[in-house]
């Protein structure tokens, strides 16, 4: 297959257009500027709608509108902007609308900086906005994987009527790698949306809402969400394992850190250290089962993150005391070298 050299942000944009994206709404923020620029240049040419909104709040509500109208729609931003979108995402989740949200995470809290970080894990995987809801969260660790996961995000979001998030950072967004882009989706293959607001012609009216004043009614709406989430947990857990067969120390890392951890595994193996890696690809649904199974036979599970230990909580929930669960994290946009992590690894295996 032909491969082209692209930045992560551009590859995500191109993959989204090839996935049948019709409406893209955005607000500028670094480090996802190339995604916005690419969309502005390419999407209108290819029959889509590009609109720069007045705020992240407006952009996500435009996504809500376009999703309600039944088209494939997307927005992208970075951490502080994603915080602003949480209100809209909560409404979208309860209204059961499919859409894709890209978060090119940066250092936080607050304005933070624009360096790679993974401090938005809680926000992405535990709901983020108000109420009991989840997003399908996909975490690419390379540019080709980012392009691949965009199509999956649209497909899963459509299938389950749950918003999907691509969670990456400026490292993935701005580095260039060869990418085999997906073939454009045949519009006929995009699932029909009989629930969409397209005009009540020859059918009863459709109402898109997240509202029911009656507790019993709202409970029922919540139960539909929860049943959907259980189904997603059963069917859609994705992860990658590297050298786990004989591992005595299991690394767990995702995204940019997952990529660095792969190098760590190689370096460790060169030293004869029995180290393996489990890299979650879906952060929600989280691969609790696969981590639990490996925890039965390793001496320790070392979580490595660009945060103060957000995913670590899920790893510990998976391990449930079966083995040691040490943690190594960096903060503020500091990205540790493989050598630095290797030092950490040597503390647990020899």
């Amino acid at each position: 297959m032909k491969r082209v050299l692209m930045r992560g942000n551009e590859a995500i944009a191109e993959a989204a257009i090839r996935s049948g994206l019709k409406c893209y709404f955005c607000y500028p923020i670094t480090p996802q500027g190339e995604l916005v620029e690419y969309m502005a240049r390419e999407l209108p040419k290819r029959g889509g709608v590009f609109l720069q909104a007045e705020s992240e709040v407006a952009a996500i509500n435009m996504v809500y509108g376009a999703a309600a109208a039944g088209v494939r729609t997307m927005t992208s931003s970075s951490s502080p902007g994603i915080s602003l979108k949480q209100e809209g995402i909560s409404y979208i989740a309860m209204a059961r609308l499919p859409c894709v949200i890209v978060n090119m995470m940066r250092g936080g809290p607050g304005l933070g900086n624009i360096a790679p970080a993974q401090g938005d894990y809680f926000q992405a995987t535990k709901g983020g906005g108000h109420g009991d809801y989840r997003l399908i969260v996909l975490a690419p660790s390379s540019v080709p994987e980012a392009a691949e996961l965009v199509g999956l995000a649209f497909d899963l979001s459509d299938r389950y009527r749950v918003p999907a998030m691509i969670l990456a950072d400026g490292m993935i967004g701005q580095m260039m790698e060869p990418v085999a882009l997906p073939e454009p989706v045949d519009p006929a293959e995009i699932p029909p949306r009989p629930w969409a607001v397209t005009g009540a012609k020859g059918r009863p009216k459709n109402v898109i809402s997240s509202f029911d004043l009656e507790p019993e009614g709202l409970r029922r709406m919540n139960l539909v969400l929860q049943e959907t989430y259980r189904e997603i947990e059963r069917n859609e857990v994705r992860w990658e394992e590297v050298e786990t067969e004989d591992a005595e120390l299991l690394l767990v890392a995702y995204g940019t850190m997952g990529r660095i951890a792969k190098t760590v595994v190689r370096l460790a193996r060169e030293e004869g250290l029995p180290v393996g890696l489990l890299r979650p690809i879906t952060l929600w649904p989280f691969p609790y089962g696969p981590i639990r199974a490996l925890a039965e036979r390793v001496k320790a599970v070392l979580t490595v993150e660009l945060s103060a230990g957000q995913m670590w909580e899920d790893v510990r929930l998976a391990v449930e005391g079966r083995t040691e669960t040490p943690f190594y994290g960096e903060l503020g946009g500091v990205v540790p070298s493989p050598g630095r992590i290797l030092e950490e690894v040597r503390r647990y295996v020899r």
């Binding site: 709040v57 407006a58 809500y64 309600a68 209100e87 397209t198 009216k205 459709n206 898109i208 509202f211």
Partner: peptide, 15 residues
């Protein structure tokens, strides 16, 4: 009797 979308407070014009 027409199709309807419920918006968040203040966001109707964006929706």
């Amino acid at each position: 009797n027409c199709d309807f979308v419920q918006a968040a407070h203040g966001r109707a014009c964006a929706v």
